[in-house]
Design a protein around this nucleic acid. Structure first.
Lengths: 127, 127
DNA sequence: AACATATGTTAGACATGCCTAACAATAAAA
DNA sequence: TTTTATTGTTAGGCATGTCTAACATATGTT
């Protein structure tokens, strides 16, 4: 049941969550544009996310996020944010580099190492 | 021509390089065991690496690495080592966690951010 | 050398994830 | 409201990467 999401599906879920937060509404095409994929690809991803109970969605239907989906999305967004801040403010990388690497690494880093990075960043800011 | 390797092919090349360094010889089955994949999968990967001139290899033939392949492998190994050291000695993660995360992140981190991590680790050791 | 075991290869299958092109439905404009 | 444009869906294709099972070759043992 509770299988781990693929990087790709995490990206779709994250996009839906972020768009919803800005617009209070999401359309498939917004997701397509945000991720730079075709509408066809988005349709397929939406089906899979709905099957996993992370979003509510039916044919030609509005998209909404479930509580489970929202929790999952928030986790990904937090990972992204934590990594971004580490790259940007601790390592001094550019905004673009920090974003790019956070986007890739957020899907594969372990909780243990991420937590250490978060702690490290906090201590770094204190000193 | 000089297309970037996939994460998977980088793993195979890295394994070949490391086994060669220990044994002075590699067999496909060694690679299979090291990566936890079937012999069939390794055969296919070897074909692709040979096509890209990273290894010398023909049907039922011994495997050797080309200068280009060796250079490429060394880069990956260095990325791995740098990440491992950062996780292990700067963040204080366990050996296993450090290995696991290095294995995954080595394929996707950018040169810019990696270089910053290397510098950071060096400075950390000085203080 | 003959047989047995280990290793390598191939074919065919499956899963993921992307695409294009054609079609369907909805929304906007006339 | 009828037409047009936008958005969503489906079907079919392609690439990657894995697997199993059957077969081929090589290696080791007797």
């Amino acid at each position: 049941m509770n299988e781990k999401l693929t990087s790709s599906l995490e990206d779709y879920l994250e996009a839906i969550y972020l768009i919803l937060k800005e617009n209070n509404t999401v359309k498939a095409i917004d997701v397509s544009r945000k991720l730079g994929v075709t509408r066809a690809s988005t349709t397929e991803a939406l089906k899979k996310l709905a099957q996993k109970k992370l979003i509510n969605y039916g044919r030609y239907d509005a998209i909404s996020i479930t509580p489970l989906g929202e929790a999952t999305a928030k986790e990904v967004v937090n990972k992204h944010k934590s990594l971004y801040e580490f790259f940007r403010y601790v390592l001094g990388a550019s905004d673009e580099e920090s974003q790019k690497n956070a986007c890739a690494i957020e899907h594969i880093i372990s909780k243990d190492v991420l937590d250490r990075i978060i702690t490290f960043t906090q201590n770094f800011h204190k000193n």
